[in-house]
């Protein structure tokens, strides 16, 4: 078994890494909102699901790909991928903002406490999932192949595939951009201020609604990007995929320390790799069990996750 594992180590690792980066981006959606509002935005899983559909709409309906089409190359390929990425990010970002305005804002103004928005979040999540289920007739939907899945290199025994490479590099760029936004811009500073102390922030003249909207927008943009990468890697989606991926990303956020951007990064990576290795060693049926056993063990020693709570700690 160990010998087999070593044979497959690098190909498992590459697969786990690209999955991990998808988790990171979704986890950011949870963690950003938690950092600012101390609230779990359960609708984030469905915002991801809608993002996957946005990508498929671009590839299938805008660029007219079918399962029989030849994959695109060169400039056209870049154009398609960029359009799909940006469209998915925008759709998810705007949807995330709308969800906040419709489902949470009034509750927040009325000081409803933590439980009402939680139920509201689960409600929104159901509405989104069921609407898409009805629209898609409960069927899985596939994305036609726009990019040929070529091997672009070899690392020990493992082939390095182009889609995994694009995911890892683009996700790293997006993550760096998010860190810069939170740490270097005026809005980022305002987000950190509200996260630290909302009352003091309001007294300093910060527009709380604006900050909350921006947080949901940024979280949604990242989650939408995850939707694009998911479709790039797996080339299909369904109205019910949000649940599974959402739980995984939420676990990643907790693992790293929810509310902490760096925590989401390491939590996502750890989870992606752990799931892949555990599936190989113990069989795929033990994946979830292994992940949660590890999570519980980590929380025993570090109850706030690997990197502790709060967005504020991301200051370098």
């Amino acid at each position: 078994m160990i010998g087999n594992f070593l044979d497959q180590f690098w190909s498992l690792t590459f697969g786990g890494l690209s999955l991990g980066f998808i988790y990171i981006l979704i986890a950011l959606g949870y963690t950003m909102v938690y950092g600012v509002l101390r609230m779990i935005n359960f609708a984030n899983s469905e915002i991801f699901m809608v993002g996957t559909f946005a990508t498929i709409i671009v590839v299938r309906d805008v660029f007219k790909f079918t399962q029989a089409s030849e994959p695109a190359t060169g400039f056209r390929l870049v154009l398609i991928l960029a359009t799909a990425l940006i469209f998915s990010m925008l759709v998810s970002g705007v949807l995330s903002m709308l969800v906040e305005i419709v489902a949470y804002r009034r509750l927040r103004r009325m000081n409803s406490g933590v439980l009402a928005p939680l139920i509201s979040a689960i409600g929104v999540s159901m509405v989104l999932a069921e609407s898409v289920r009805i629209l898609t007739d409960s069927r899985p939907v596939a994305s036609p192949r726009a990019m040929e899945k070529k091997f672009i290199g070899q690392f020990f025994d493992a082939g390095i595939r182009i889609d995994n490479t694009i995911i890892v590099i683009s996700a790293l760029i997006l993550f760096a951009a998010l860190m810069t936004f939170v740490n270097r811009t005026r809005m980022g500073k305002a987000i950190r201020a509200v996260s630290m102390n909302p009352n003091a922030a309001r007294l300093m003249g910060i527009n709380i609604d604006g900050v909350v909207s921006a947080t949901f927008l940024v979280g949604g943009l990242m989650t939408g990007a995850a939707g694009f990468f998911y479709v790039l890697k797996y080339e299909n989606t369904a109205s019910n995929i949000g649940f599974e991926l959402g739980i995984a990303a939420f676990t990643a956020a907790i693992l790293g320390g929810i509310g902490n951007i760096k925590g989401a990064f390491y939590g996502g990576l750890a989870l992606g790799l752990l799931e892949t290795y555990a599936s190989f060693f113990l069989g795929t049926q033990w994946k979830a069990v292994t992940v949660f056993v590890v999570l519980v063990l980590i929380l025993y020693t570090r109850p706030n996750g690997l990197f502790g709570e709060a967005l504020t700690q991301t200051r370098a």
Binding site: Q8, L12, G15, G16, I241, E275, S279
Partner: peptide, 10 residues
């Protein structure tokens, strides 16, 4: 299951 890499390795 959405990611089959472990089964594929086997």
């Amino acid at each position: 299951t959405t990611d089959w890499s472990a089964t594929i390795s086997k």
